[in-house]
Design a protein around this nucleic acid. Sequence first.
DNA 1: TATTGTTATACTCTATAACTATA
DNA 2: TATAGTTATAGAGTATAACAATA
Lengths: 155, 155
Amino acid sequence: MPIKQGRDLLQLVGYQLQRASLAAEQDARRALQPFGVSPAKLTALVLIRDNPGCDQTALGRALSINRSSAMRQVNILEERGLVERRPGRDARTNALHLTSEGEQRLGAMLDAIRESDALSVSTLTSEERGVLRALLERVASQKDRSRPRKRTPAD
Amino acid sequence: MPIKQGRDLLQLVGYQLQRASLAAEQDARRALQPFGVSPAKLTALVLIRDNPGCDQTALGRALSINRSSAMRQVNILEERGLVERRPGRDARTNALHLTSEGEQRLGAMLDAIRESDALSVSTLTSEERGVLRALLERVASQKDRSRPRKRTPAD
DNA sequence: TATTGTTATACTCTATAACTATA
DNA sequence: TATAGTTATAGAGTATAACAATA
């Protein structure tokens, strides 16, 4: 017998967000499996491609992780030959770039993820998808989340 | 200098879902911190309260985790005196119930989470929140996610 | 002093695989 | 055979705290 989700959960936007996000993430993970990367790593690759020469700390901020965690991700992408560290704007920083292999593979990954994304929301009309994306963008980019904000994720 | 999110990311509903979900989850985590539980554990508590006597495997399915992972969560909730295992419908199964302390604490947790949830979507009108919840529900409960589905999370 | 990268360490959450005891 | 619980183990992802080099 299946479990009931009562009103206390269903009324929470955060609960629905989590469930929808998890479902889409699993779809994406499956689609990216042949490439051996997670959805988060694909995001990192796209950010590096679109911000060539960025440093690890900035990348981490964009991914909502701290620079130590960002380093780990970059290490993995570098080991796989997708990303390289070049000398940065000063002697402390690395400039991140995709390798040519990284650029090539990323193209195929994006094809796969676009297909998977469409499947994740295949029950919505094209207009509804637009509405959803716009509402989500407002929630995600809401600056004041009340409460004392001190650090950006934590560091 | 901040990092640019190009169109390749912004056009993906899954990307926006993940960002909005993460933001709301962090809000929830902060709100629940005084209670020492994560958002996922709150979900487990509500599901147990609303499905008294359910077993661990069913709980896991509702949480999209397998029975081994469900066990770990129940162990923690039991250690904290919020949940108890009683004899189940047959000798293999446990019947999960909230303790009286669990019921009491859950009430306060729900107050906190409702407030946090409202803050997470405070830039949306009440109507927009309803639209968002409805759209998310359809994405989350979409049954056919194409591709060969065999196991429910994995087991 | 502040910042970047780095390392070591630990924690949370999840999964897999195997075992047991039931059914 | 199939199912529920359990255990041991491993992996991914993140965090904290320190340190060195540089600004």
